[in-house]
Amino acid sequence: MDHHLILRVVTRLLVAPILLFGLYVQFHGDFGPGGGFQAGVIFAVALILYGIVFGLSRLRSIFPDRWVMRLLAFGLLLYAGVGVVSLIQGGNYLDYNVLLPSAKAGQHYGIIVIELGVGITVFGVMMAIYYGFAGRPPSIEDTDW
């Protein structure tokens, strides 16, 4: 999409605020609507928008394929890891009360960490699916629409 000047300029302006909004949704999930699921999607949307406008190869150079599968697994492991930590601390699996001396603080930290795990996995999955579809041979030409 080299000749779409407006799209390129608007995308440049939009990508950073979308990423920031994704982070806001991720870490503000306890207080307002949102959480890991939505944040992961929003974060992926910013990169996918970049990929659509500036080309898949440029996106791949910023966010290489090998990172996708690592993030995918890392998010789920982070989530499951919180459960293991709470087991080690002497509680039930995924019982956040025992993570910190104060039960409420433990709940807060537990929720933030597992939401982060959710966000990372969802982000990874969205990127994996996008790369899967967009990376196949027939690339989209402007005249095709």
């Binding site: 999930g29 959480g35 791949r60 394929d65 996708v68 599968m69 995918l72 697994a73 998010g75 789920l76 989530y79 499951a80 459960g83 699996y93 995924l94 956040y96 709940q107 537990g110 929720i111 597992i114 939401e115 795990g117 959710v118 996995t121 969802v122 990874g124 999955v125 994996a128 699916i129 790369y131 899967g132 579809f133 990376g135 196949r136």
Partner: peptide, 29 residues
């Protein structure tokens, strides 16, 4: 995240498996 944390972990696992499945079927490069 807390009362139904276990369910949510299952959901994340489902999303994870979906991503794995798509990647294995139509694959990254």
């Amino acid at each position: 995240a807390s009362y139904r944390g276990f369910d949510t972990m299952g959901e994340v696992a489902v999303v994870f498996v979906a991503g794995l499945g798509v990647t294995m079927l139509i694959g990254g490069s």
